[in-house]
Every structure is written in C-alpha cells, then in structure tokens.
C-alpha cells in the first residue's frame, strides 16, 4: 500500500473507522455540548478542522527539531502552548481583518484550545511516525470525521427533542444513549474501508 492509496487510506480511516469522537472518544465535550443545533454544530466543526490543520502544520517541524535534539519529553508542553497561542493569534487576526469569517467561526475558537481532539491529533501524528503530508491528511480526516459525527448527531438530537422520554433519562442520559446508537452505526464502516483497500 503506497502513495495515493495509502493517503486515501489515512483519510478514510480517520473519518470512518477511527472517527475521533465516536471511536476514539476525543472531543466529547463539544460533541455533547454544541450539537443541539445543526448550524452551531457546523460552525464548531469547521473551526475544529481549521485549527487541527493549522496546529499540525505548526507543530510537526518543531517536533522533528525537538526529537533531533533529544528533547522529545518537551513534546506535550510545547504542543499545548503552541496550539493555545496559535488559536488566540488567529482569533485576534480574524477579529481585526476578516470580520465575516470571525462572526462565523471566531466564537468557537477559544473553546477549541483545550479540546482534546486537537492535541490528540497532533500527538497521534507523532506516534504514528507520519510524514508532514500524511500528518496533514490525517488531521484533515480527523476534522472531517468530527464534522460528520457532529452533523449526524445534531440531526439525531433534534428528533430527541420531540421524543417522549422517561423522566429519569431526560437530558444528558438520553443524549448519551443516542450517542451510543450513533456510534453503533459507525462500527459498520470497518468492513467498508477494509473492502475498498484490501489487496
């Protein structure tokens, strides 16, 4: 499995079989908290894709440098600081120069700083020994996977609003059980990816 097919494999597994939210449990807070309406879910997800790609681009070379100097143990602290600073910087720039984009995405940016999906994708890229290009593809796949999960789940939740739920299960428990069923649907994708890329 080389070149294009490997690249496609990275993207598809990140979106479907290893979905960040529903399979790896990263970024659960926004998944449960901001998925009530479809358009907020959309805004949050696009912001996540944007930040994931940006922080991967910013940290990959830096990590390479740290590893070469035997400073691999500073990885976590450096990455989280870079991500936090980057998010703040982008927020300020957007606010000042690209007002329309800021209105659409800006409000979600600070929430993403401590979103474990972002730090998670960066660290997973290092762990898997991906090249720069592969890291970007994996981050893109992870972000799109987040978007897909958010959109599907916000649809599920809007149906939940009108459903007749037992008193005890109302609120968070019902949301979690709905998430469980959404997660079941993603398990089926394992065979699909395997089927497409099987040799």
């Amino acid at each position: 499995m080389t070149g294009v097919s490997y690249a496609a494999w990275i993207v598809f597994t990140a979106i479907l079989t290893n979905n960040f939210v529903l399979c790896k449990f990263l970024g659960i807070c926004p998944f449960l908290g901001v998925s009530k309406k479809v358009n907020t879910a959309m805004g949050m997800s696009v912001a996540v894709i944007f930040v994931m790609l940006m922080s991967t681009a910013a940290t990959w070379h830096l990590n390479q440098f740290l590893e070469s100097k035997g400073l691999g143990y500073l990885q976590t602290i450096v990455c989280i600081l870079i991500i936090a600073a980057l998010v703040q910087l982008v927020e300020i720039i957007l606010k000042k120069y690209v007002k329309s984009l800021y209105n659409a995405l800006g409000i979600y940016l600070p929430l993403i700083t401590t979103n474990c999906a972002v730090l998670g994708v960066v660290l997973l890229n290092f762990d898997n020994g991906f090249t720069f290009g592969q890291s970007l593809l994996n981050s893109l796949g992870g972000g799109v996977g987040f978007l897909v999960a958010m959109l599907i789940f916000s649809g599920v939740r809007s149906r939940l609003e009108t459903a007749d739920i037992p008193e005890t299960l109302k609120g968070l428990p019902a949301t979690l059980i709905a998430a469980s069923l959404t997660s079941v649907s993603f398990m089926g994708f394992a065979g699909v990816v395997d089927g497409i890329f099987a040799k």
Binding site: L172, L176, F186
Partner: peptide
C-alpha cells in the same frame, strides 16, 4: 466497544440524576 461506553455512561448518569 465505543457504543457500550456511551451506553453505560448514559445509564450511570441516569442513576446519578
């Protein structure tokens, strides 16, 4: 599996509620 995680958490949450 992941789905079981969400399910058990939901039930536990219902209990806490």
């Amino acid at each position: 599996l992941p789905c079981g995680g969400f399910f058990v958490f939901g039930v536990l949450m219902a209990l806490a509620n």
